[in-house]
Nucleic acid binder design. Structure first.
Lengths: 128, 128
DNA sequence: TCTATATACTTACATTTTGTAAGTTGTAAA
DNA sequence: TTTACAACTTACAAAATGTAAGTATATAGA
């Protein structure tokens, strides 16, 4: 039988273990514009809870994608920044942005709910 | 100025509603090499259950990324193929593959056959 | 001292999503 | 009649995520 492909590239799979988890893409995109502290990320992505933000940051730190820097000011300032590994995702994020601009509808804010499949976020190419 | 409620680009967010869901990246990547039927995808991604495969395919169809074609043979043949919208994700997948080859360790895994690299272990960045 | 504010988290508990194994539908060959 | 295949469903368990409240540390004000 012609069954050459018994699986996918493990590195690609590993990449999607990170990118395929909720919030991670938005967090990486958010940090591409520079280091940010907890509350800044929280207000950039207001639909994400503190708990999730905290967990995802630990994951991303463990994955070597972000670093956590502590500045003992008052109140303490903690900054999250992308590592080289994280910064290397910029072309990925740009490709996604380009795709999104061509193929994803710009929804009315009021009806926008992430991952709500009862409302259409689908269309043909967006031209003008 | 009034407090920040700028958030992120809604189209980018919508894109990650799709790509940020488990399995979707692997499914799209799997279909980039051509249309496939249920059982083929299932053996390409053996860790994914039939239930999830079925659900994700419905999602991706609803999102306009795949089409489902029925051939009334015996037994019935059903093929899933990428639409233009889905095919347009190829640059994204390539960017992820490139990143993964540079930055993701090749971990001990079962049999696989991917990106024609015989390099078995890239610890840390390629430059590290 | 007691109260209040600020940042960066934790915790307990509810809800949603995903995983697992078995069952269903329809056709046809043994 | 039994078996097999393909493409799903279903019931139920486990894991992930959401929500609201609480914690720790430090400072300033009444």
């Amino acid at each position: 039988m012609d069954n050459d492909h018994s699986g996918m590239c493990p590195r690609f799979e590993a990449a999607f273990c990170i990118l395929g988890k909720r919030w991670n893409g938005l967090l990486i995109q958010g940090l591409l514009s520079g280091p940010k502290r907890f509350k800044d990320i929280s207000s950039l992505i207001p639909t994400m809870s503190d708990k999730m933000l905290s967990e995802r940051m630990k994951d991303l730190e463990f994955s070597g994608i972000v670093t956590r820097n502590v500045y003992p000011e008052t109140p303490v300032r903690i900054e999250y920044a992308l590592t080289d590994k994280g910064l290397a995702l910029q072309p990925v994020m740009e490709a996604i942005q380009t795709w999104a601009e061509s193929w994803v509808d710009n929804l009315p804010a009021a009806s926008y709910e992430c991952c709500d499949e009862s409302d259409s976020n689908v269309s043909n190419p967006v031209n003008g």
